[in-house]
Design a protein around this nucleic acid. Sequence first.
DNA 1: ATCAACGTTTAT
DNA 2: ATAAACGTTGAT
Length: 752
Amino acid sequence: MALSPDDEDYDTSQSRASARLKPRPAPSSGPKLLVHKSTSGARRRRTRCRKCEACLRSECGECHFCKDMKKFGGPGRMKQSCIKRQCIAPVLPHTAVCKICGEAGKEDNVVDEAEKFNASLMECSICNEILHPGCLKVEESEGLINDELPNCWECPKCNQEGKTGKKRGPGFKFASNLPGSLLKEFKEGEDGGRRKSEDLGRPKMEEYHPNRRKSDDGLGLKRRKEKDLPMDMGPRKKLRGGKDDKLQKRKEEDVTQATVKEKKRKTSPNSEESNKVNHLERSEHAERIERIRQMMKRVNRNEATSSSSSSNSDSDSSSGSESSLQRSAGSSGGSSPRSIVKGDNQRSKLRRLSNDIFSEEDDEEEDEDEENARNTKTNSLLASKDRENNYYGLRGENIQKNSFRTVEVSLKKKNGPSSQLCHKVLGGLPRPQILSKLPVQSPPKPFQMERHVVRPPPDSPEPDSLPLDSGSEHVMQREVWLAIFRYLSHKDLCICMRVCKTWSKWCCDKRLWTTINLSGCRSITPTMLSGIIRRQPTMLDLSWTNISKKQLSWLINKLQNLKILALAGCIWSAISALCTASCPLLRMLDLSWVVDLKDSQMRELLSPPTDCRVGQNHNQSKLWNLTEFHLAGLDITDLSLGLMTRHMPMLNKLDLRQCTNVTDQSIALLTAAGSSTRETLTEINLSGCHRITDQCLLLLKHCPNLTQIELQDCKLITAQACQQLVEGLAAVAPFELSKEKILKRRSLQLTK
DNA sequence: ATCAACGTTTAT
DNA sequence: ATAAACGTTGAT
């Protein structure tokens, strides 16, 4: 009788259909009341988050509900989503507004996490009212946050009245119990199937009020701090054990209590009272604040699907956790602030699932990487010796030792084409700090990057030394480690990042990432973009990638220190991001072989912006400061060259290889009296420009600063003319003719 | 307007 | 208690 999606006997048209067909008594004919029985609030139907793993799947075509669908030949009566597509974190509809102020979620407009919470829309699972917590006048009582659903809580009113939650919270789906539902897996994962029957059907709540907390400090458990972190890097499984689980719960409550106290203190700033706060509490002050922040974050529906994550250290409160790898390796212990939320495992799982969204096409690779980090037993990077030890049971120095072995092993593994390597490396980059910016209410936008804020890395990632378990510090300071890290490849740096939180930060030091090369990566994913931004390279190679306009635009605007950018082989629609994005320090740009980049596009690119924004010199092109421009293989003509002479007054090096429409006239423009390029040009590559003739050599003679002219494969250029040019230039500087038709100024190096 | 599917109601 | 049905919402 069970609903069996895989049941081959399923027959919609006969046996079951006969059970109940259209002719249905219509007691509820007419529009259904939206009002919930026990309350006043009109229920807003939740909708897909469209970001979770389930939402991103396609219909399986095999489950019960798929078979019902007309598209799969069914009658279409059930009107249910594919079981594999049951959304894990259904969100409030866009149109939802605060009952009090009538406005949508506004957490986008605030920075502070606590404020974000107050500005987000929260739906009460009891009375169904949706409102901004901040719009509530008095805090007679605290709300009880339901961590299971985004933007869901028991509002202070209902909470105080002692109403019990509904059996089925908002977003409940009976179908979630069906086999194959990710939502089901997800739920089971949360409590390990050991949830008490009395709790069943009730969403898990994050205790938020002192009166409701279960007293428990009894064990006197103290949360671990950052320095103990390596201890916490044990495999997730550990936590699932009954004992550990209990321990964890206790800790959760411990932390909750702390949080609540903190909150209480905040609301009633009685100086005397705060003076009474004992020393221990004081020392945990920052932690508590952090906990509140984490809680707020969690409230945000995007928290469930963004890779923003909690961290469990004081020192980390500013940077958050930057790495899902790190997170998975480092926060599985009970000391994670997330442990204040029941069902942490589930949370993690959810996060993990959701993270896949960011990885897009590199899911598999990322999953693999994450899995490696997550499960030390299967971590192929660990030497077998290490595997015999309880790797994560080791502390401090041992961790470091082992991690070095890890690196050594990985170094031996280096192979494969660099592009793929790069892809893997960045694909596996630890998650950068990503905070949701989307208001609870606004619809998921098609492009995800706009929703994320990636904090730039600090100049020198804290801390200065590795804290040891003993409380002392490791003798080697950060700068020493960094000196060592400099010898590692980017891939190996990524591996090192998994060792511990501190290494994770240090390995992100932008000094280690001045150049990032992703050329040839089949897919640039948001994860990679975030990883790039965290590292703030000055040189970035995205040639021959499928980067999109929005991605590029987002990226450039966040890489204000970028000096060199290579976008060869990308599509014009992406390149056009340069028309609007600002990159003031950009000196070198490679747009070779950009499909559809012709004169009109070049005009767009080089024209000064029409809208004069603050800080933007409205007469100048965005590429005004460019000194090196690579335009190989473009179908551009004199028009573009003319533009360049007007809008690129610093141009030194110009690469026009294989620009078959470049003519003598083009060269004439570059070398004309009064043209800036005439003075600035030092290197010009005209190889393969088969329309230029010996005439242009005479023109180039006018450029006093030229040090290199490349003319290979220029059929109309004769060797004699080249020789004559060398002789003609001799008066200015000693030139030589190296190889075939390459003129170089003597005593100066060839650049390529 | 169309489509997907949420969440309640009804049948079993 | 569970499966099926379906009115209606929400997104496009």
